[in-house]
Nucleic acid binder design. Structure first.
Length: 403
DNA sequence: GTCAATTCACATGAAAGAGACCACGGTCTAGTG
DNA sequence: CTAGACCGTGGTCTCTTTCATGTGAATTGACGA
């Protein structure tokens, strides 16, 4: 009986027409053939980098723009073109793309340089060598032959935040010491104010050319979404108005095209799963919630134990008191939580930092207030819809293996 | 009543430690010819 | 004799702790009206 049901289910599953024809077109790794509304930027980037094809060193280029404004896409697109041309004509141009945000790959000075050396065929142990040694290896690997190297550092702000600007200083100065090769740097940053706290010497040499990517507006987003969805979805699989709403929402949300595409994809998956004939507006709303919830739960699940314990303490304290919980109270609860889970409690100093981190992540809102005679502290409350609170608590209990 | 000094309860910074990783080179051990 | 196991050394990286300093308004207490 049951077996039959299952078979039926699979039969139905197979027979059902999926809404998608090519889901990959909505994934962030998808490289579209053309990039709407970024022609100007593409030609600008191309202009800056073109000298590489003539064997001259291009200016260093710095690109700002919020997330999902197509920075990476444009740079990748342009550099791909350059790469293919140089390959056709066997020009000595090499393009290295490194995403500095990827953990364990390039999020410290050492790792970045190690990764670079690897790109040039010299493996470097992931740790254990002095940093200047790694630099030397990289140097020699780079300078083996005459070539122009275009080094794309994506999310460079992450790297500098952690590793300091010395790295950039070293990189920008490399050219003076290289005999054969020349290297130019393309920095991509989400943070518009990133160069403000940069060493002026680095700043001037890094941003010989600058480019700012403005966020997409709603109409441009519509074009993008329409182009992608025509590839991704079945013909007329999308109800009228869905694209528009999706674009409008993303436009409100900093014009982030990546988010808009994700939203559309998740909505499509939801609609597909429920067997809907078309992707409708209600799916969009559901998708919005799902994304938000998944993001949050995933965030919590991947936190280290101590952070989970802290968050659990916050949840508990907030439940007891509803309004305005203070750092000291949380620390008290936290200590008892540690006792229950047999962990060694961290110092208040550290917990204070952890609380600040949660604030940054948007899981809680923590405002520093002064209560006058009664000191200065953070006023903390959960920034989570109450229907998800329970889910979060049980997730934390599970993570901490509490009853 | 007014005003400056005091005070609280942390926030925020800087520096240093601890411990996990990892590569490398030297030494020890067991297996092989 | 040699390959592999094992250890100590020297390095990075991340998370914490320790020590110091900063902070903003309620409270306090002196002062003057």
């Amino acid at each position: 009986m049951e077996e039959k049901g299952l078979v039926n289910f699979f039969e139905q599953f197979l027979n059902k027409r999926s809404l998608f024809t090519n889901k990959a077109a909505l994934q962030s790794s998808y490289a579209p053939g053309n990039i709407p509304h970024r022609d100007i930027q593409i030609s600008q980037v191309a202009n800056v980098l073109a000298p590489a094809l003539k064997g001259e060193k291009p200016s260093n280029l710095f690109i700002y723009g919020k997330t999902g404004t197509g920075k990476t896409l444009v740079v990748k697109y342009t550099t791909d073109q350059i790469a293919s041309i140089s390959q056709q004509r066997t020009l000595p141009v090499k393009i290295v793309y490194i995403n500095c945000k990827l953990k364990k790959v390039a999020d410290t000075e050492y790792r970045l340089v190690a990764q670079l050396s690897k790109e040039f065929g010299k493996d470097v142990p992931p740790t254990g060598l002095p940093t200047d040694e790694v630099y030397r290896i990289f140097f020699s690997a780079l300078d083996r032959q005459k070539q122009i190297v275009i080094l794309v550092l994506d999310e460079i702000d992450e790297l500098i935040g952690k590793a300091g600007d010395e790295l950039l200083y070293n990189l920008t100065r490399i050219n003076q010491e290289l005999k054969l090769a020349q290297i130019s740097i393309v920095g991509i940053s989400n943070d518009l104010s990133f160069t403000d706290n940069l060493d002026p010497r680095v700043k001037s040499s890094l941003s010989e050319e600058e480019l700012v990517f403005a966020p997409y507006d709603a109409l441009q987003l519509q074009d993008i979404l329409r182009a992608r969805s025509s590839v991704a979805f079945r013909q007329d699989g999308v109800e009228f108005g869905v694209i528009e709403k999706c674009a409008a929402r993303a436009a409100n949300d900093n014009g982030d095209a990546r988010r808009a595409l994700e939203l559309l994809r998740v909505a499509g998956e939801l609609a597909d799963r429920t067997g809907a004939e078309k992707l409708g507006l209600q799916h969009l709303d559901q998708a919005d919630e799902t994304i938000e919830k998944d993001r949050m739960l995933e965030l919590i699940r991947t936190q280290p134990k101590q952070h989970q314990a802290t968050l659990y303490a916050i949840v508990k304290a907030c439940k007891q008191k509803k309004e305005g919980v203070f750092t000291g109270e949380i620390y008290d609860v936290y200590q008892t939580v540690c006792e229950q889970t047999k962990q060694r409690p961290l110092t208040q100093r550290r917990v204070s930092d952890i609380i600040a981190e949660f604030d940054m992540l948007g899981l809680i809102t923590a405002k520093v207030i002064s209560k006058g005679r009664y000191g200065r502290t953070r006023e903390i409350s959960l920034a989570i819809p109450s229907q998800n609170e329970q889910r979060m608590q049980s997730l934390l209990e599970e993570g901490l293996s509490l009853a």
